[in-house]
């Protein structure tokens, strides 16, 4: 499998990134190189091998359902580029 320009356009879209034509060329080549390199894994027999989900054997890590104070709103919004009426503000969301 190799990465096509169409693939790169698609994944740039999914990633919310704009690419110039030149960048599209560049990334297509670079990603193809990397993906081709990664294709060496297809030579390994992984039949019946369980994928690693966690490197540590962990399970059932839970928290008690106990309320702790939340943060001040000013703190929560401190880093927001645009805010209004105690909220983060964004351009109109069209459904």
């Amino acid at each position: 499998m190799s990465v096509s320009k169409e693939d790169v356009k698609h994944i740039a879209n999914l990633s919310k990134l704009n690419l110039t034509d030149k960048e599209l060329e560049k990334y297509t080549t670079e990603l193809s190189d990397i993906v081709n390199f990664a294709n060496e894994l297809s030579n390994i027999d992984v039949d019946g091998i369980k994928p690693t989900a966690h490197i540590l054997d962990i399970k059932n890590v839970f928290r008690k359902d106990e309320v702790q104070p939340s943060y001040d709103r000013e703190e929560i919004l401190k880093n927001a580029p645009s805010k209004d009426a105690g909220c983060v503000s964004v351009p109109k969301v069209v459904e």
Binding site: M1, A38, V46, T52
Partner: peptide, 12 residues
């Protein structure tokens, strides 16, 4: 082909 296989190779 990629993510799942990589996690299997990780197990190996």
């Amino acid at each position: 082909a990629y993510y799942k296989r990589a996690q299997q190779v990780r197990t190996l």
